[in-house]
Amino acid sequence: PDEYLLSLKFLFGSSATQALDLVDRQSITLISSPSGRRVYQVLGSSGKTYTCLASCHYCSCPAFAFSVLRKSDSILCKHLLAVYLSQVMRTCQQLSVSDKQLTDILLMEKKQEP
C-alpha cells in the first residue's frame, strides 16, 4: 500500500525508489551452492553487477564504501535495500551454482576495483 511506500521514501530517500526499481526489473539474484552457502548479486542500473552478502550488511558498490562505511551518512545503499525488499517480497531470481563457482564469486568480488 501507499503508506509503506511513503515510509520507505521517508526513511531511505531516493534510494527507496531506486531500490524498488531494481526489484521491479528483477535485478536481484540469490545464488546458492549445494553447500547451502548463499550470496546475492544485484545488477545495477549502470549495468555493473554488485555482490551483497546474505548474512551481514555488505555491498561491493562504491556508494556503500563511501556513504555507508566512510561517511556514515547512509545506513545502506540501494542494492542492499533492494535485496532486503526482494527478500520480503519473495521476488529474487534464483541461481544454483557449484561450490567451486560460489568460491569464485566470493573471490572475484575481492578483485573488483572499487
Binding site: V39, L53, A54, S55, C56, H57, Y58, S60, F64, A65, L69, R70, L106, E109, K110, P114
Partner: peptide, 15 residues
C-alpha cells in the same frame, strides 16, 4: 588498507 577491502574481509569472516 583500503577500507572497502577491510570491510569485505570482515564481512566475509561473519559470512
Amino acid at each position: 588498507p583500503e577500507p572497502q577491502k577491510a570491510a569485505y574481509l570482515t564481512a566475509l569472516l561473519l559470512d
